[in-house]
Amino acid sequence: MIGQHHAKAKTLGPRAAQLFTELNERHRSTFTVADVEAITGLSAASSRNLVLRIQRNGLITRLKPGLYNLVPFELGWATEHVDSPYLIAQELVGTAPYFLSHGTALELHRMVTQPIFTICVSCTRRVRPQTVGGYDFRFIHIAPEQEFGVTKHWIDKERFVIVSDMERTIIDGLRHQAFAGGITEIAKGLWMKRDVLNVERLADYALRLGVGAVIRRLGFLLEHYGLAAASTLERLHVALTATYQRFDPLLPAEGAHVARWRLQLNVTPEELDAVRLG
């Protein structure tokens, strides 16, 4: 694809041809003005001018100031194209460690029953929410020691992004339900993938993260759905303090208290049981 761009770029001069050749070598379809400077050796102003000329010729699309992606050759005369939002997310975090997470990871692992439109990214760098190429991106700040439980998701044969594995996705959802469609969506994902999820790994991740509310919610769900051995439940149970937490922090503090897991169950048992029927 980029080789065909190279042929068209030759008419724009050697710098444009050099840019597309190097992007091809790096398997990059999304790039920044800083990349153009580094590849061509041009000044910032000259790099911006080069990008503007290439954009006018329909070879690239501007996603936001300073960020662009290539228009695939097979689109013919189209001059607007937005690449995979997952690759855009990778560009937005720069060199900082990151992984696609929460609702986005649920979708990538096919653990949802409804589409999720916000791209969620966990990152060790603080990045503001933004809309790029028509996609909404939300960034969840994590400490470096919280970067675990990740895997590769291949966009195509040459490009991949980092995503939380299924177990980490469940744990993150139990911590930040608002980014994952709510507690019942997490319960659905847990039930849908019950035959392939590693329950011991789920417990390991919850204890490693060390967030009491997550340990409580995971223990309760695993016990409610009969998915864990008694020894696994005990590992989670002994880590609890006397403090009570709401099962769903997005809902009011009402409902019965579950003493075993130090939880206020503010969703109905019927809602949780309905997950099995989905």
Rank of each mutant, 00 (worst) to 15 (best):
H141A: 07
S84Q: 08
G278Q: 13
R26T: 04
V196N: 03
L42N: 04
Q264G: 02
A213M: 05
V211H: 09
P249A: 10
A7H: 10
L265A: 05
V163C: 05
V163A: 10
R138P: 00
Y68T: 06
Q130K: 12
H237Q: 11
P97I: 00
T30E: 07
Q55G: 08
A187L: 05
M192H: 14
F137T: 06
L251Y: 03
T32P: 08
A203D: 06
L221R: 09
H257T: 05
D136R: 15
W77T: 13
F73V: 15
S43D: 08
E167K: 07
L42K: 11
G134R: 10
W154D: 14
S29G: 09
P14S: 06
N198K: 08
T21P: 01
I183A: 04
Q114D: 09
H237V: 00
V36S: 09
L106N: 10
E234F: 00
H27A: 09
E271P: 00
R168W: 01
H27C: 04
W77Q: 13
L174W: 12
P144D: 13
V275P: 06
F179A: 04
V161F: 08
T243D: 15
V267A: 01
L227E: 12
L202C: 08
V199W: 03
G94F: 06
E271S: 11
P269E: 14
